[in-house]
Design a binder for these strands. Structure first.
Length: 192
DNA sequence: CACCCGATTATCT
DNA sequence: GATAATCGGGTGT
């Protein structure tokens, strides 16, 4: 399976959020492989009041302002990490796609070890859940996702536009009118 | 240094 | 459906 390259991420953030549906997230831990298909995403742009990038570059969010195809991992609510992929056109300062849910494909036993007592359906159907199941922490903030390593993304399915559902983003207080949450239609691993 | 808040989840009822 | 848990970063004194 081919690893997604810069030409995939070098587009408007909202477009890449849709394009990422159906692609595979690959995690390598101690020689073992975890794979999940992306089934739910959200877009956050530089001029979007709901984005961490909105108030400008800070040490905590600098990955969002860095090169496309790299990871932005942040910690929130005291307990949870969330994983984003940096994506934007060249003349724009920042932009990221939050990966909200995956369908477990490979390494399900290891995911269950990382999330003890959870059913397969509850392994990766939320942004904080999938980072736990894939052992994604701030250690991986800023890493290059376009080459083989601990974390990268590979080509997968191309989801037709008519099978993509756009809805309001979840858990934000500003810019709630934007329909920038994208899901694969009728996928049982989408959150909520 | 105190205060506030958040791109969430688990665990109740 | 409601709420507690939990903590790093931002903001202001």
């Amino acid at each position: 399976m081919k690893i997604l390259q810069k030409s995939f991420y070098n587009h408007p953030t909202v477009q890449v959020a849709k394009d990422l549906l159906g692609k595979n997230l690959v995690r390598e831990i101690e020689g073992k492989l975890l794979i999940g298909k992306i089934v739910e995403t959200e877009a956050y742009t530089h001029d979007d009041p709901a984005s961490h990038a909105y108030k400008g570059e800070r040490n905590a969010n600098k990955s969002l302002f860095g090169p496309v195809g790299h990871a932005y991992v942040y910690f929130t609510y005291g307990n949870h990490f969330c994983f984003n992929v940096v994506a934007k056109v060249p003349n724009v300062s920042a932009g990221g796609v939050l990966i909200r849910a995956l369908e477990p494909i490979e390494g399900i036993e290891i995911m269950q070890e990382l999330r003890p007592g959870k059913k397969i359906k509850d392994l990766t159907n939320g942004p904080g859940k999938l980072t736990q199941a894939f052992a994604i922490t701030k250690e991986l903030n800023g890493i290059d996702l376009m080459q083989k390593g601990p974390l990268y993304l590979t080509e997968g399915e191309v989801i037709p536009e008519e099978n993509i559902v756009a809805t309001k983003r979840i858990g934000i207080s500003r810019a709630q009118d934007k329909l920038w949450r994208f899901c694969i239609e009728e996928n049982q691993f989408v959150s909520r």
